[in-house]
Design a binder for these strands. Structure first.
Length: 297
DNA sequence: GCGTATCCCTACGCCTAACC
DNA sequence: GGTTAGGCGTAGGGATACGC
């Protein structure tokens, strides 16, 4: 994930704050305004080192501040603003020291989880903000991005600029009108693949979020009993789920239970492949079908 | 009584339109 | 261009119903 903060630990930031304020995306056209903003930002050092008071934050106009934070998510560790989901993903990335992918996404989930003690941010945001579901979707989107299935850009009217392989969020812009179909969508043939993202608990809404179109589930589910009944597996397939991706430990617990109950035959999707899969398989699987054939999932 | 499925309420975020 | 208020829809969690 891009961060222009000149001191971003990921090392891909701008060379200076002057370069940041000159970015067209920040929409600061006046040279005087750019100069005064650069003077304010010059007081911000490395992430995690906050300025001495809040007056610097409020001296930046709210809309400009929001665009600035979007461009430089590391600033959420220095400005008391409600953190965005994308910034949470970036701060997880900073903590791990690598892009978020299928292998480390579970660690990223643990890092941002407020109730966890085993992991924590290297540089935490000053204020909480984005809701859990929003962060889960951002993590899923970042995994896709880093496995060669990037997020589609939106045009000025809020429509996605279609490309492939790529994915589109159904929670943003004009696509929000079809949000009930899922959270993310990957164009594929003969059917697009819809991704339903959840956090730790699936509950009945996970079933409802299926829609008898080609769907996959993505979540950090920690209760295998939500999935291991024969009726639940049959329902998932009936509602269009070709695969459900979850932590490896949860998949192992389900598989062990199915072996004991002699019901492992239910854990097969309509394409003859496993219904329940580890998160580590998510990125490679989605790259295999993006812009290709959906029944390869 | 237990496990599972479903219903319902509340909080919250996004979108749109109106207004400054 | 930016801000604000109202409407709408969803997520999350608790309560309830149902079948064994």
């Amino acid at each position: 994930m891009d961060c222009l903060h000149p001191f971003c630990p990921r090392g891909n930031g701008a060379r200076s704050w002057e370069e940041v304020v000159a970015r067209p995306a920040l929409k600061v056209s006046s040279l005087d305004q750019r100069a005064s903003l650069a003077v304010i930002l010059a007081q911000f050092g490395a992430p995690g080192s906050p300025p001495p008071n809040d007056s610097l934050r409020v001296s930046i106009p709210p809309a400009t501040r929001k665009r600035l934070l979007d461009l430089c998510p590391c600033l959420y560790t220095q400005l008391a603003e409600k953190v965005s989901a994308q910034a949470v993903v970036h701060l997880c990335e900073v903590t791990i020291g690598a892009p978020i992918d299928s292998v480390n996404v579970e660690t990223a989930f643990e890092i941002q989880h407020p109730g966890r003690t085993a992991f924590t941010y290297l540089h935490p945001p000053l204020l909480p903000g984005a809701a859990g579901g929003e962060i889960m979707e951002a993590l899923c989107s970042e995994v896709l991005q880093n496995h060669g299935v990037p997020h589609m850009e939106m045009d000025s009217d809020g429509w996605p600029e279609w490309s492939s392989p790529a994915h589109v969020s159904l929670n943003r812009g004009k696509m929000r009108k079809v949000k009930l179909y899922g959270d993310l969508m990957i164009p594929s043939a003969p059917h697009n693949v819809l991704i339903s993202v959840k956090s730790e608990a699936a509950r009945e809404r996970f079933i409802v979020s299926g829609n008898r179109l080609e769907s996959v589930g993505f979540g950090f589910f920690n209760d295998p009993s939500e999935f291991w009944t024969s009726s639940r597996m049959d329902l998932l397939k009936r509602w269009g789920f070709a695969a459900v991706y979850m932590p490896g430990a949860t998949v192992l617990a389900i598989e062990e239970h199915l072996r004991q109950k002699n019901t492992s035959s239910h854990n097969v999707n309509i394409n003859g492949r496993p219904l329940f899969r580890a998160l580590t398989e998510f990125g490679p699987d989605m790259y295999r079908i993006a812009g290709k054939l959906s029944f390869m999932v």
